[in-house]
């Protein structure tokens, strides 16, 4: 299992040289720290999926002594591992550039990342290879596009809900949000496993 997670690094050895300038670019551009965390986290796991959309890769992985459930588990666990690594690296970079960020940024960034993973990973197994990169790209743009207006729409029109959220104490808000993210993530994991189990190579 660990070996499956580690393979992403071996495959992407060369791309990792782009990774650091990529993060630095966002930092220098003065992007929101939360957004930088999100983008940095996405880099490795989604790049890996770019490789895995090839049918050959699935044939290889499934011919090796792995179970299909393990292959999916490595994706979901790997995403978390690489998210933690990316957040660490980004934090160091932010420090180095004297940019301030709060714990909230980290939490929002990672929360959004996990949601994004939960929504897109099952799609990888539904869509035909070749379309996947496009699907991810479009859904990512849509997500970042829609997220802002939706939030402002909600805050403008449904003051009741906002007040409800505002009335919650910060810890319980975090707890609730974490719980929701975990549930969605686990659900997505389950769905991906079911889809992958039935896949034909």
């Amino acid at each position: 299992m660990f070996n499956l997670i580690r393979r992403d690094i071996i495959i992407q050895k060369n791309q990792l040289f782009i990774f650091i300038p990529f993060i630095l670019f966002f930092i220098i551009m003065g992007a929101q720290p939360a957004f930088t965390f999100l983008v940095a986290s996405i880099f490795i796991p989604f790049n890996a999926f770019g490789y895995d959309e090839k049918a050959e890769t699935n044939i290889l992985l499934n011919s090796l002594p792995y179970k299909r459930t393990e292959i999916i588990a490595s994706r979901y666990l790997g995403a978390i591992v690489y998210m933690l690594l990316s957040i660490g690296l980004t934090s160091v970079a932010l420090f180095a550039f004297n940019k301030t960020f709060t714990m909230t940024d980290v939490v929002i960034g990672s929360g959004l990342f996990l949601l994004f993973v939960a929504l897109t990973f099952p799609l990888f197994h539904i869509f035909k290879p070749g379309y996947i990169t496009t699907v991810v790209l479009i859904s990512f743009i849509l997500l970042s596009w829609i997220a802002g207006p939706v939030v402002s729409f909600i805050s403008n029109h449904l003051t009741g809900i906002t007040e409800f959220f505002a009335s919650l104490s910060t810890p319980s808000l975090y707890m609730g949000a974490t719980l929701i993210v975990i549930i969605i993530y686990a659900l997505s994991w389950g769905i991906s496993t079911v889809i992958y189990e039935r896949k034909v190579f």
Binding site: N14, Y51, T57, S63, P65
Partner: peptide, 29 residues
């Protein structure tokens, strides 16, 4: 499943290994 595949060596007609990698890295995986 795992016990069975442990005992099989496979060769397919097309290359199933990651194209951009060298043999050393493929072995590592």
């Amino acid at each position: 499943e795992k016990d069975i595949k442990e005992r099989i060596g496979f060769v397919y007609d097309s290359n199933v290994f990651f194209e951009g990698l060298n043999l050393k890295d493929i072995k590592r995986i």
